[in-house]
Design a protein around this nucleic acid. Sequence first.
RNA 1: GGAGGGGUGGGUGAGUGGUUAAAGCCACCAGACUGUAAAUCUGGCGUCCGGAAGGGCUUCGCAGGUUCGAAUCCUGCCCCCUCCA
Length: 408
Amino acid sequence: MTANDFSFDVITPSEIPAPDADSDNGPSQSNAPRAGELRTPHGLMLTPAFMPVATQASVKGLAPEEVRAAGAQMVLSNAYHLYLRPGVDTVDRMGGIQHFMGWEGPVLTDSGGFQAFSMGALRRMDDNGILFRSHIDGSEHFLSPEVATHNQHQIGADVIMCLDQCISFGATRNEVTAAMERTHRWAEQCYQHHAASGKGSQALFGIVQGGTFEDLRDASARFIADIQFQGYAIGGLAVGESKADMYQTTGQVTALLPQDKPRYLMGVGSPEDLVECVARGVDMFDCVLPTRVARNGALFTSLGRVDITKARYLEQRDPVENDCDCYTCRNYTAGYLCHLFRAKEMLGARLASIHNLRFVLRLMAEMRIAIVEERFEEFRRGFHESYVPTDEAARQEQKTKWLKARGG
RNA sequence: GGAGGGGUGGGUGAGUGGUUAAAGCCACCAGACUGUAAAUCUGGCGUCCGGAAGGGCUUCGCAGGUUCGAAUCCUGCCCCCUCCA
């Protein structure tokens, strides 16, 4: 591998000590918010960054130029889905995923480990790997650390992920421990297979597991950080635990990860989570939430989520958000979007996806500027002052209602 | 004029004596969605009281009737559709 293929530079905060700096406290720890630059064979990504999800080599409903116009620099795809269809060798022969999907920029692939978690009924797992039953035709497929790495080599993503075992919230400590240890073994295998493969232009990231158990996360972060990956991910969060637990775990792990390597929080991406996890030193995110909820009519605004299908928007002549610079808000009224959703016109899902992607991507860009200008805390406060997550507002409203009814 | 078919909750449409406040679908209302088996899923949906459990009232074109009991059977009326003239 050459130094030009992949690199990550933290450009702020400037007080981060050089790797060789004297320290009698062991490695210096910091989980402060930071801005950086990630270079890949297919281009640059400024961090902190959000990567839209293109599971099947497509950000659902959107053309690459629309994803680009929304401000995305890198997208995430999925090795398991591409392995099943069209097949990793096909992607390879089609010129690699970037060329295949017409995305002129870096791509990261997930290994398929998450599918073992989310498609639980269709798989069996042991230390050797995961035996899947295809959701497409029922055929059986085996995914080992080596196969998962090989598949991602074939797909040709700029960043590839270790096979890991994600576990649901509510699992017992023993189950979480077992999944973590398996993830560690697989990380070593993925690393070795990758190192021996000659696919050095692709960067391999390790994944920390450990649920919400503090000591397990600690052990996992240290174990994974000891392997010379080119980036480090936090997996197994946003699977049902409280936000407080998620934030706590995220901050705990980032403090233990190398400062000169990118930190990637997998599967997180609600606006409030992005802000809180950037605050804890995360550099990269991916999440289906912005695009998925968009397809169901939920639009992010600076005040919180809006359900555009509500009758009250039928004749709203303003855009979804007046200050938004996205294609949707510059060209269409909220009333029109409301109509499109009620009429089940696919344009509605597309326009909403464009808006939500722009919202989170602009949020990331604004956070980056705030970090560089050393006013991140101020930005964070300002964000929370106006943005009210729907779920919390609704929960609060229900609680109030319930208490009222009970009292009366 | 003749022959036949039909009128069910916002729409569509099952249901032909009790298990029916009445299936399913649509519309509408509410909620969910975080490394995408998701343009998906869940709940509500006559009305009144209740936090709920539950209870009251009123419904199957209209009016009578038969029956312990009717959306379902009988009679009359009103309306709609198809075919023939």
